[in-house]
Each structure stands twice: as structure tokens, then as C-alpha cells.
Design a protein around this nucleic acid. Structure first.
Lengths: 367, 367
DNA sequence: GCGCTTAGTCGAAGCGTTTCGACTAACCGC
DNA sequence: GCGGTTAGTCGAAACGCTTCGACTAAGCGC
């Protein structure tokens, strides 16, 4: 393994000159630069990351604090991680994966104290997240994915729930729906102050009221069983519902199963729109789910860029940015039964979709 | 940030003594050790990971080479990563996440040449995986998750597909099924030589033949649409099928949808068993899927332990280990229509399951 | 043509560890 | 009581880089 010494010797310059070629910290003449680069190429030189980090007091490693539970990572989170990793790699940084949640504070403290991290990305942020305090105390720059209750002085990237919910509701109202039920995460989750659950709840209320409609929210456990239970509750509280907006990727499958069990076809009798859902998951359902695609990859990239700005420019100003999910109409939403839209076929799914049409036909046959 | 110097000064010993206390490389008297430890505690000393790595030529960082696509990580992979991260952390190692597939060889070469990695875990291993060659050439110890075509001299951990398939088939045959169809990954995937697809194909054939039954395999694209198409093909080729074994987590949902479309209830008319599937995903389906639970977390732990053995003991002997998936009976499998098992209820799902019973009843009502 | 800045390069001093050789003192067997 | 271990400690030399100060030559304004 060639070292900088070897390169310097071969190029007949000093080590510091080689270093300056590499870092650009001082001007180097074109002629010298060429000699050095040639020597590097010949030796297949690669700088030793550890030595570089030690001398420059920059590890070029960022921490990805990602609590992982048995449920696995959704496609949204995965896209986020992928986007972040790509952006980090482009910038010459590495990502260390630390499955550190709010309960592993000692682990976090150790990691951060070892001066191995130039900065950290916090995922699954709680409204009162102690990890933030630890990192701040240790002087590690950080960017949140999501938001704490008090975000003063904190940079974050997050989904724009207000806009996302508002667009989803707009889609359904535009199709002619009036009685729309919102299936959220569980009551406990909401009570705990889980941000997305709270924000979507409030946004749903605001959107419905804005349309002059009555908001009805049903909490559901994150499971198929939770979805089934939620549907039963929903039908009891609003027997005339024609559309369901779901925040809960796990529950939505149970919900669909139970709808079929009640003999209600989707989207003919009930439209279903799933929020913050990846295309792949949306396609798993039958019919495929109209969904609000989460901007996972873009969020990841943005988070890294924001974090690197802090790392490089000695912790300058903060950046707080929101990205909305994009509506993607698939087979699970359409005009409610007996509307003009139904007859003229003009307000059906915005994207012509043979597949969805086939499924709708099949569904009607059964109904 | 306290350094070793500070600790040494406070404890009135030399830096090397402090180092020996930390690493245990040489004996230190109890009295001295205590003094040093007290000084460390007082200063809240944490060794600098980079300096340590530079001096010892051990970064204590392992690479997790994890190609990530838009589909996200399944629960199996996530469990694997979690298990690996936990095991690494326990051993005092860190995991850097590198979304490096077989196409990013330059990226891999750079990462490995920077001497940042003590070893690497390769995920999504191809039968002919060029990443293996790159790492070997650069002298980086590695452990495969999965297997290449030629595994001589390579350590790996993998799922025991033979045993898993054999148990799944055994479960169905034990329930009384004779006409069992295997839905695999796509034909292209099999042709490419994707290990799990090939191995399960062969294992299925062997298991069926072993029971004196005719093996029928249908390939399917990894999507709901692929699953629907596969079912159509399956019903054409084997109209009398009573059970489906599916390898394809994505296709299985389309398959279930299409079964319902054809008026065949699960598990009454057709039993479905999904392979290498996590509990959470299995629960999403209606009815919940009988599945072979993948040993993700255990595999992760095992992989790290194996890798560390290589790293520590200067690349000793190789370890090749297989772990089977465990059968978990849920609502999607039962005895075929018209068997004794059906009548006596003795061969139903092994686990008494009110939920499944309820669903079966509901299903029958619709049929 | 004189001071002044600036481009370009070098040597050396770190960065915070580990590790090697050396040394002392105690202990062992005989 | 004498060579030979061994436990216990120290000082100094790496590890492979960055960065600081210093120096030489140009280039500039006037």
C-alpha cells in the first residue's frame, strides 16, 4: 500500500506538496500538480482515511442514527437511507449505521465521544428526543429527519404533512366524496406525541373543515388486525362513508381485507388513499393503492447536504425544510357511486390504467 | 476532550501504561490499573477512534455492502442488519453502510483501499460476484450473506433452503395436499443464476419427488401483477391444485388477490405457504400467511461473529453455515377440501387461532 | 527600483494512539 | 547466590496524514 511518502519521492517533491495537491489547501503549479498526479496514478495511491482523519480532525464519517425494530424498514426509510448514502458518497463521506434509538444514550455518547463522527442524522425523531441533547452537548452537528416539539436552533428535513394531507383530501373531494374517514396510527401513538400522527390529524381536520366537511378520525394499531378493527369502527360511526384516507401502511391491508369481507368493493363503493406510501407497497394491494408517494430519496439527499453545510461551515445558520408527498392515482380511488363522474367516466383515475379497469370490472362482477 | 496524555499525567504514569491498561497488551499491576481507571473516569476519557485505528492498523470498522434498490429492504434484510449491528457494537466495532452492488466496483475499490475497513459483509451476493474478487485482491476479510457459485475458500452464512423447502412441503403434504405448485422468482432471475431461486427450485423438485409427487414450478415477476399472472398460469397447468408454495414475497399478494377474483377461498380451496417471509409481512395478508420465518437477526449475528474471527485471528479457517427458516402456521394453510382433516378438524392449523377461524368462516360465507 | 503582496514549495511539528526495546526488581530452581 | 524468567513500567519511535511557519521568486503599484 503506497503512502504519501512514496508519491512524494516518485514525484520528487515534498510530502506537504502532495498533500496540497490532494486537498487544494494551497496553490500548486500546474507542472508540479501533473507530476504528483502521475505518481499517484502509477502507485495507485489512495490516502489512508484514518491518518487523514486524525491529522485534519475530520473523520469524514457521518452517523446515521436509525432505530430498527422487528418490523423492518419501510420503503420510505430505505429510499431515504439510499439517498443519503449516495449523497454522502458523492461528497466523499461515509455513513456509519448506528441502530441507536432514544433508549441507547450511553451507546450514542460513546460513539460521539470517540470523535469518529463529523455529524449525525437522527431518524425516527421523537417530540422530546434526548439524543439531540447528547449530541449538542458533545458538539456534534446534527440534522433531524422529522421534528422535535421545539425546533429552535435545530436543522431538520421532514415531510410536509399539511400539504400532503390537503392534496389527498383535495383529490377525494374533487372526485365527489363528502364523507371521508381518516385512519391514523394508534391512539397511544398519537397520545405519545408521535409527530406524523399528530400533524396529519390536525391537517386532516383543517382540510376537511376547509371544504365545509366534517372530519372523522379513527385510530388504528399498526397491523392488519388494527386495520380490520378500524374499518368496523368506521362503518359504525359513518355508515355512509365513501372514502378512506389511511396513514397507516400496515393497517391499510387489513382495511382492504375487511372491506372485501363486508362486500364493499374498492374503489366502486369505497375509495382508499394511502399516505406516505412507496410505489412498491402500493402495488402490492389489489387493486393497487392510490397513494401519496413519499419523497424518501430526495429527503435523504437534502438531509446530507444540510448536515454537510453545518460540518463544513462551522455550524452556520439552521435549515428547516419540508417536502410534500406526491399524489399518484392508482386503482383504489374513483368517484363515489352514483355521481356524474361515475357515469361519464371523466373523473376516474387520472392515469388511464387498463389494469385498474380490469380489476374494477372483476370487482363489480363479484359485488 | 481529554487525551491519553491527560490521563497519564493525572495518574502519574506514562502514556504507554495507560495504553496497556486499555488494551491489556501487557500486564499492569492492580494498583496502577486502579489509578489509571480512576483518572479516566474523572476526565471522562474516551479514546480517539481514529488515532487508535491509525496506530494499531485496525479501524474497528466493518463494511456492510448492501445494494439498495427502490423496493426497499424487506423485514428479513432489516432484521439481518439489526442483528449484525448489535453484534458488531457488542464487539466494539462499527458498521459502515455502503450501498455497493456488483456495479459499483470502483466505489468499493476506493473504500477498501482507504484502509478504513477491517472486513466486509456482502449482501445480495450473486453467483459470480465481482465484489469478492476486489476484496480478496485488496486483502479485506469478508463473509458472504448468501453464496457464490464457487465457495471454496470463502466463508458464508445463508438460509438453508433445502431444509426450509422440505419442511414447507412436508407441512402441506401432512395436511393432505398432493397437487402443490411452487411459485418462484422470475424466469430471468432463475436464468441469471440467482441462488435462492435456483436452490429452492431444486429443493422443491427433490422434496416433491421424495413424496412421490409431481413437482410443478411457475416463475413470477416480483410484483403483484406477476403473482396474478402466475396464478392464471398455475390454474391452467394444474386446475386441480390445492396448495401453493410461494418464494416471492411481492407476488404472493397478487396471487391472493387473484385467487379471490377466481372465487377460490384461502385456505378452504387453496392453501398458501410463503417462504422466507417475516412475521410482520405475513400478518398483512388476509388471511394471515402461513410462512417460513426467515432467521434474519440470527444470520446477522452469525455473520459478524464469523467475520470477526477472520479479522482477529489473521484469516484462519473458513466457516460455512446454514440456518433454516422456521415454519409458522397462520390462517392461509389447512387441509384440502373434502379430506378427513377437514371433517375432524384435527389437521387444521397447528396453532389454534380464533382469528383464522373467523376469517375462514367469513370466506366461506362469500364463496 | 523599492517595498509589498502573492504563488509555489519545503521542512518540521503535530494529531492521539500503539508497540517495541529496554530497564528494574522480584522470583525461581537448584 | 547465580543465570534465567517474568511482572511491571517507561521512553521513544512509529502510524500516514495535515498544517503552520518560513523561504524564494515573481509580479505589482507607483
Amino acid at each position: 500500500m503506497a503512502t504519501m511518502q512514496d508519491v512524494a519521492r516518485l514525484a520528487r517533491v515534498s510530502v506537504s506538496t502532495v498533500s496540497y495537491v490532494l486537498t487544494g489547501a494551497r496553490p500548486i503549479s500546474q507542472a508540479t500538480r501533473d507530476k504528483v498526479l502521475a505518481a499517484m496514478a502509477e502507485l495507485e495511491y489512495q490516502p489512508n482515511a484514518l491518518a487523514r482523519g486524525l491529522a485534519s480532525r475530520r473523520s469524514r464519517i457521518l452517523g446515521l442514527l436509525l432505530p430498527m425494530d422487528e418490523r423492518g424498514l419501510g420503503a420510505t426509510e430505505t429510499a431515504f437511507v439510499t439517498g443519503a448514502a449516495a449523497a454522502a458518497s458523492t461528497a466523499g463521506y461515509h455513513l456509519v449505521l448506528a441502530p441507536i434509538g432514544v433508549g441507547d444514550l450511553d451507546e450514542l455518547r460513546r460513539l460521539a465521544s470517540q470523535r469518529m463522527l463529523d455529524g449525525a442524522l437522527l431518524m425516527e425523531v421523537q417530540l422530546h428526543d434526548p439524543r439531540v441533547d447528547v449530541l449538542r452537548e458533545l458538539g456534534v452537528p446534527l440534522v433531524l429527519i422529522g421534528r422535535t416539539a421545539d425546533t429552535t436552533g435545530l436543522s431538520y428535513v421532514d415531510i410536509d404533512f399539511d400539504r400532503t394531507v390537503s392534496e389527498a383530501v383535495g383529490h377525494l373531494v374533487g372526485l365527489g366524496h363528502r364523507r371521508i374517514v381518516y385512519v391514523n396510527h394508534s391512539a397511544d401513538t398519537i397520545a405519545e406525541g408521535y409527530g406524523p400522527a399528530r400533524r396529519t390529524r390536525d391537517a386532516f381536520t383543517a382540510a376537511m373543515v376547509g371544504h365545509g366537511l366534517e372530519p372523522l378520525m379513527i385510530p388504528a394499531e399498526d397491523s392488519a388486525a388494527g386495520g380490520r378493527a378500524a374499518l368496523v369502527t368506521a362503518l359504525r360511526q359513518a355508515p355512509d362513508l365513501t372514502a378512506i384516507l389511511a396513514m397507516n401502511e400496515s393497517a391499510v391491508f387489513g382495511l382492504l381485507g375487511e372491506l372485501a369481507g363486508h362486500g364493499r368493493s374498492v374503489p366502486h363503493d369505497v375509495s382508499v388513499v394511502s399516505m406516505v406510501t412507496s410505489p412498491h407497497v402500493a402495488e402490492l394491494a389489489t387493486p393497487a393503492l392510490t397513494a401519496m408517494n413519499s419523497p424518501g430519496s430526495a429527503l435523504g439527499r437534502l438531509a446530507i447536504e444540510t448536515l454537510l453545510r453545518h460540518v463544513d461551515s462551522g455550524d452556520g445558520e439552521i435549515h428547516q425544510q419540508l417536502l410534500p408527498c406526491a399524489l399518484e392515482v392508482r386503482g383504489s380511488s374513483g368517484p363515489p357511486r352514483g355521481t356524474a363522474g361515475e357515469i361519464t367516466q371523466n373523473q376516474g383515475p387520472a392515469v388511464p390504467d387498463m389494469e385498474a379497469a380490469r380489476r374494477r370490472a372483476a370487482t363489480r362482477r363479484r359485488a
